[in-house]
Simulated assay, not measured.
Amino acid sequence: MKNLLKIMLTASLCVSASIAAPQKGSMTDPRDEKTYKTVKIGDQVWMAENLALEITEINGNPGSTNECWILGGNGKKANCKKYGQYYSALAASVACPDGWHLPSAPEFKKMLDYAGNSIDLKSKEGWNTYQQSSGNGIDKYGFNAQPSGGCIVAKDGECSYLEEGKRAYFWTSTVPSDTEGVAYAFLGASHTDYGFDLAPQSKGLWMFFPVRCIQNEKKNVGDVSADFNEGEATESSSHDACKAAVAKAKNTYNRCITLPKGSSERSLCAKKYKEEKENAEKACIIKNAKNSCSRSASDIMEVVRQRMPGLRHIYNKFLKQQPHFQGVISLRFTIAPGGEIISISIASSTTGYGEFDNEIKTAVSRWNFGKFKCDDGNVANETTVTVPFTFYE
């Protein structure tokens, strides 16, 4: 069965296609403030550098080697930037920052299939020759795979390095159910030497490989987005209830994306997530009404959902000016009984792009929520709300 798995994972990467220029960007890991280059390959966003976060230990066992400072570089610190840390399989599973994750073998294969070969993914220097031919790549997509090799920790605690210059190794999150191993991806000096293999779990803790993180999918549970924020505390919607509702929905989302695409289990999970997300939106909307006769959170969010797609063209316009920017804008506005917005302001923003924020505010200010009357026929009061708007590619 192990051989069968290996055959499945190392399926030929002969697919070719007309590929658009890669979209490059950057991200900063808030845990240690290191900034990494990123690149979009197909519909996936990858770190374009190996992770360099040091993990001293995990569950009482070694986390990362911290040997990136000296590997092949005679003590040059530049090698930590070049090769990153070398992680145990267990540490690798929790190493990526929030919003990113350790890629599965299928996610790696999707990227490899998109590229169609290994020479386009490998760095332009550092690779050994193979049968008198250079092993260096052309780095067409900006993935910049370095020939880092890996290491095995011996009983004395020293890291014995192997195949630097010959291969690039990357941990995956895939643990096949019929084996006791963890899958890892590799690229070799020969441009036809690439695929996957298994590190036996009994030894995997002591095998150390680099990590490349991939950005979490944003739209992959039914037709529902996973992005929304919990807002602020008010009399009508307590902050604690809001946070609890958001956490519940996010936990369900994280479980859904682990289920096979197209499966009935994932479909049912997506339905549950959609319900929990709607409950969270209702719990988190900030509402300040003078009496109980005011617009409901569900009525307001229904209009917001209907009108939200109309803001996409604004985001796309600014995205051309500043690739990969994203964030959440919380707008605070007051809706008159007739439905028009009579005042609006930016309560908070994480986009870091003031011009974009103001254009979104202007567009929303033109929305109309329709006339509203109380059940007894009296004219309703004005309703003030704060609603988070999330934007991403």
Rank of each mutant, 00 (worst) to 15 (best):
M8E: 09
M8S: 12
A11F: 11
S12H: 14
A17G: 11
A20I: 04
K24C: 05
D29S: 02
P30V: 01
P30A: 06
T35C: 07
Y36T: 05
I58T: 08
N61H: 14
N66I: 04
C68V: 04
W69T: 11
G72I: 02
K76E: 12
K77S: 13
G84V: 03
G84Y: 04
Y86N: 03
Y87I: 01
A89F: 02
A89T: 05
P97T: 02
P103F: 01
K109T: 08
K110Y: 07
Y114L: 08
G126M: 00
G126H: 04
S133V: 14
S133R: 14
K140E: 12
F143N: 08
P147E: 03
G149N: 03
K155F: 09
G157Y: 04
K166L: 14
R167N: 09
A168R: 04
W171T: 02
S173P: 04
S177C: 04
D178F: 14
D178A: 14
T179M: 03
G181R: 03
A185E: 06
F186R: 02
G188D: 08
S190M: 12
P200D: 09
K203E: 12
F209N: 07
R212G: 08
C213H: 03
E217D: 15
D223H: 11
V224M: 12
V224N: 09
A226F: 08
G231P: 09
G231Q: 01
A233I: 11
S236A: 10
H239T: 06
A241P: 02
A245W: 09
A247N: 13
K248Q: 15
K248V: 07
K248T: 11
T252F: 03
C256I: 02
I257Y: 05
P260N: 06
E265V: 07
E265S: 15
E275K: 15
R295L: 03
I300P: 09
V303M: 07
V303F: 05
R305D: 15
R307P: 01
M308D: 12
M308R: 14
L319R: 15
L319K: 15
Q322H: 13
P323F: 12
G339L: 07
G339T: 06
T351Y: 01
T351Q: 07
G354H: 13
D357Q: 11
D357L: 03
E359L: 05
E359M: 08
A363S: 14
R366Y: 11
N368W: 04
G370E: 04
G370D: 09
F372P: 12
D375E: 10
V385L: 05
P388V: 06
E393D: 14
